[in-house]
Design a protein around this nucleic acid. Structure first.
Length: 291
DNA sequence: ACCGCACCCTGAGCGC
DNA sequence: TGCGCTCAGGGTGCGG
């Protein structure tokens, strides 16, 4: 489940494959839920364009193209962006992998879930976007054009401050966990890092946002930044679907303290980690450390 | 304005 | 061995 760190790791690894390259041709799958811009318009709009810059806004990748248009990619739950050198062995699911013949395991061969296939001029390695569940989003914006999805986003989670959190939570009755997942105030936090940051900040995820104190807001902000920065350093969290663009696992799953550790002892106090549901999301916390 | 919830999708895992 | 059910969840949009 790509959150800010997984998106940032992807951005850093894909940047050298995209920036400075001119797109010779784009192949797409048929129209579906993930294409906010239709496949036909996408193919037309990208052909012959040079990629000038690859940035990130929360969990969105934003690619500036020659002429001022922008290609926006959201990885959703299972989106993967990677270059031709990545290994199929690691990118595909266990079942899909099992049906590969040995020669197919070395490079990547586009399958039914591969929705974008970029080919470049000058023979640079191809780049692919693959998304099994199609919760991802692909959008091409014309020069100067904006989109409500991007306009709604709040401050990048790497820049969050206690001051901002405290001010924005006043009068909000939602659980602090749900508040952190809402991208309109702070953007980039997803389910795993919300649970991890709240555990480190010692705040119970069910606490109403308005009841979070100024001191706790500071702790949450610090821990959000720490957890995200550490996750970027370690390559992200590979716990269900996510693998890095070269097909290797991230490392942050080994530094988890609560996420998917229900029933196991809290690493701080030994009390069993509890799992509940908050705002339709599986939520993990230590009942002793987090009050 | 705010909040809870259904929905989009597919594969893994489980019970029978 | 295989079927059908449930669950996972980012983000949108709707109804209360």
């Amino acid at each position: 489940m790509p959150e800010l760190p997984e998106v940032e790791v992807t951005r850093r690894r894909i940047e050298p494959l995209l920036v400075g390259r001119r797109i010779r041709q784009l192949e797409t799958t048929g129209d579906s839920y993930l294409f906010l811009t239709s496949p036909v318009q996408l193919r037309r709009g990208l052909r012959g364009r040079r990629v000038e810059f690859l940035g990130r806004r929360g969990k969105y990748l934003v690619s500036n193209l020659e002429g001022g248009s922008r290609l926006i990619v959201h990885l959703g739950m299972t989106g993967q962006l990677f270059g031709a050198g990545a290994s199929s062995v690691r990118l595909l699911s266990a079942t899909a992998r099992a049906s590969l013949v040995p020669e197919e395991q070395r490079g990547f061969r586009p399958d039914a879930h591969t929705h974008l296939h970029f080919r470049f001029e000058d023979g640079a390695p191809d780049v692919y976007f693959r998304d099994v569940r199609k919760f991802g989003k692909i959008l091409l914006l014309a020069s100067g054009e904006s989109h409500p999805r991007l306009e709604r986003l709040g401050a990048d989670a790497l820049d969050v401050t206690g001051e901002l959190l405290f001010a924005a939570t006043r009068g909000r009755r939602v659980a602090i966990k749900s508040f952190l997942l809402d991208q309109t105030v702070v953007t980039g936090i997803g389910n795993i890092y919300a649970d991890e940051a709240l555990h480190r900040a010692r705040v119970r995820p069910t606490r109403r946002a308005a009841r979070v104190t100024r001191a706790e807001s500071d702790r949450i902000a610090v821990e959000v930044r720490n957890v995200l920065e550490r996750a970027i350093e370690t390559g992200g969290t590979s716990i269900r679907d996510y693998v890095t663009p070269d097909g290797s696992d991230g490392g942050f799953q080994d530094e988890r303290r609560v996420y998917a550790r229900q029933g196991e002892p809290c690493l701080v106090c030994d009390a069993p980690v509890r799992r509940i549901v908050v705002g339709q999301r599986g939520t993990h916390y230590c009942p002793r450390c987090q009050r």
